[in-house]
Design a protein around this nucleic acid. Structure first.
Lengths: 205, 205
DNA sequence: CAACTTATGTCAGTCCATGACAGATGACAA
DNA sequence: TTGTCATCTGTCATGGACTGACATAAGTTG
């Protein structure tokens, strides 16, 4: 990796970290791009060459998460029940975060804390997740050989699994302490969902 | 109702209708506040005295929807199973739209069509719905006498019901023809969800 | 070192959104 | 009807997010 690319990555992370800290310190709305760029020693214009928008700072990793989720889902064996396959994909995302560097994990958790404080950001994040949901529905429908426009079951499978994940992620009035606690809550929500559902409910027929 | 209030309501609707038509015609992002205000023969500044933002035009009715949903939920008999209670609340919202004036229904459907075309708006709407979901969770937890911070079941009940509603609302690659079709799809999604769930799954114990 | 590619800063400009203020317009009582 | 008051509206000024254009600086490559 050349000097140029290393510099770029450094600037990207400097902007990211400066922004997250400023957001948590003085609030998301009250922090200006100028401040963020200033903290990272670049111009405002340069900021927009790294991030398409202010939100992109907080929600940017969703693209990566979506890719992991969909890729994992595509690689699950076709005979696996669809709900189990989607849950496996959700677990793959969690594992990815757990296995990343401590710095990246910290950024992830800071982002989560930010969303807990800011309904507008939380809304954006959930809305973005819903987009991923749609793509997952198409994939589930494909592997089950059904048409998502007439068959609502694939939607239900994905929506139920995503609900479990979202419930695990929620931590109103709590600190987002560490990844382990988060993973445990997601696992517990998935287990609860499974207890609520009829055996074989997700198989077409 | 005095002349002043009638005028205000007229301006509000003029802005609303001008905006919805412009959005559908030439796209949401490309339509400026100035154009909308111009179409309704008011200044841009006045626009912001009726709507807090551009998004508010499309998502403003969510406040009303949320109120109906939560009020209905609160009035359901305590002995009613929670999932059924939440579904009743969702039905109350649909009925409210069905029973409104043809103009209001048309505005509602235009808004839906707009969201289908614009992922950003759809995301915002779903994110807003998630906020309502949280409040509904608190209410369900209250009537079941459980603490939503430790008991994930109320979350699951609400999330599953909301999922059914959302699936019914989705109409990718389809026209949002009329309210009846929409209601039917929601009913069908709720029925499917019920077939997938174990009897008595939503009762604490 | 020279030619090329790519990143950066500066500048100008658009759009969304908000505060301040003055003038216009209904509401209402005498 | 008229005068007073509350409220609505337009104009103006401002700030912050974001984008395009262009010149300059810095890394890359032969």
């Amino acid at each position: 990796m050349g000097l140029r690319e290393r510099k770029k990555e450094k600037t990207r992370l400097a902007l990211m970290d400066a922004a997250l800290d400023l957001f948590l310190e003085q609030g998301y709305e009250t922090t200006t791009i100028e401040q963020i760029a200033g903290s990272a020693d670049v111009s405002s214009r340069t900021f927009f060459r790294y991030f398409t928008s202010k939100e992109h700072l907080v929600l940017g990793h969703h693209d990566e998460i979506q890719a992991i989720l969909l890729d994992t889902l595509r690689l699950r064996p076709p005979e696996e029940p669809p709900f189990q396959a989607v849950c496996a994909a959700l677990r793959a995302v969690l594992r990815e975060v757990e296995q990343s560097t401590p710095e990246d994990r910290e950024r992830f958790l800071k982002g989560r804390r930010l969303m807990e404080d800011n309904p507008m950001l939380m809304g954006k994040a959930i809305g973005r997740m819903a987009e991923t949901e749609r793509l997952a529905v198409d994939e589930v429908a494909r592997r089950q050989g059904s048409d998502p426009r007439v068959d609502q079951l694939p939607h239900l499978v994905v929506a139920f699994a995503m609900s479990a994940m979202r419930i695990g992620y929620e931590c109103e009035h709590r600190d987002v302490a560490d990844m382990r606690e988060l993973t445990e809550r997601v696992e517990s929500a998935i287990a609860l969902a499974e207890r609520c559902l009829r055996p074989g409910w997700d198989l077409t027929g």
